[in-house]
Design a protein around this nucleic acid. Structure first.
Lengths: 135, 135
DNA sequence: CGGGATCCCCACCGATACTG
DNA sequence: CAGTATCGGTGGGGATCCCG
């Protein structure tokens, strides 16, 4: 029940009266990684690519409601963070395959820990929200 | 190399040509929990409250740069999801103490798993980003 | 087939001022 | 001390059209 020895973030665990400097949470690795997946589409793209590599339109057909533009932007974002690899086959018509990098695959494991928690506690969260109609 | 048996989200793991219905990721527990912490201040508030309960202004002094208004909104959000408890002492002047609920405390554990990954792989992520100057 | 360019809307967030 | 109200900037995200 006491705090785990492993800090939740990189923040020091001391109980200081000093304010936490802005850089420590502004560029906090944990915050950054959480935000990486918090946009509307990144998570589902990671999940689908976690099963197997996909082509562009294959991904779009696999995700209900995503626009052409947003799939591009989502993939660019994941690619620029090193989670997704983009392989272009110089054929006609062009063929582009997206797959998780080893880094991207390694994210799935800690993510599933959080996922388990989310699924287990989902009823309690939604119940709490329903008690406060609208903030 | 193969997919972990524990699904990252509640999505089924079958390899169907059917698009994933919008509700499955739109109201996905995992996505929701990730977004819960992805705003600018929620994570640092959770961390501070994870150490010990705090009063309102005590929190504000502890977080560099947060405005009065945003601290209120952040706390309301966490409270409405059942992660934070708000105790009002009917004194003059008023005294309000915020603390993690058992639900909030239980989140710290899976979160630290993700935090460890984030800290370990932070260099690789930033390195990848620096290779693509601006998208 | 895969992707860029443009336009527009809206939620997030900061600053400021006011209140019990 | 602990809030709420209002205003405005900014970035995410959808719709649409154009391109190699």
């Amino acid at each position: 029940m006491s705090a785990p020895s492993t800090a939740v973030t990189s923040l020091a665990s001391a109980d200081l009266p000093m304010p936490v400097p802005a850089e420590e949470y502004d560029r906090c690795p944990v915050t950054d990684v959480v935000r990486l997946m918090s946009d509307k589409w990144s998570m589902i793209v990671l999940v689908l690519l976690g099963r197997r590599p996909h082509r562009f339109n294959e991904l779009q057909r696999g995700i209900d409601g995503i626009s052409h533009r947003m799939l591009t932007r989502t993939l660019r974002g994941l690619e620029s963070s090193g989670l997704v690899h983009r392989r272009v086959h110089a054929t006609v018509p062009p063929r582009v395959e997206y797959a998780l990098t080893p880094l991207g695959e390694s994210l799935l494991e800690p993510l599933s820990g959080l996922a388990d928690w989310a699924v287990r506690n989902w009823p309690e969260i939604t119940a709490a929200r329903s008690r406060v109609p609208v903030s």
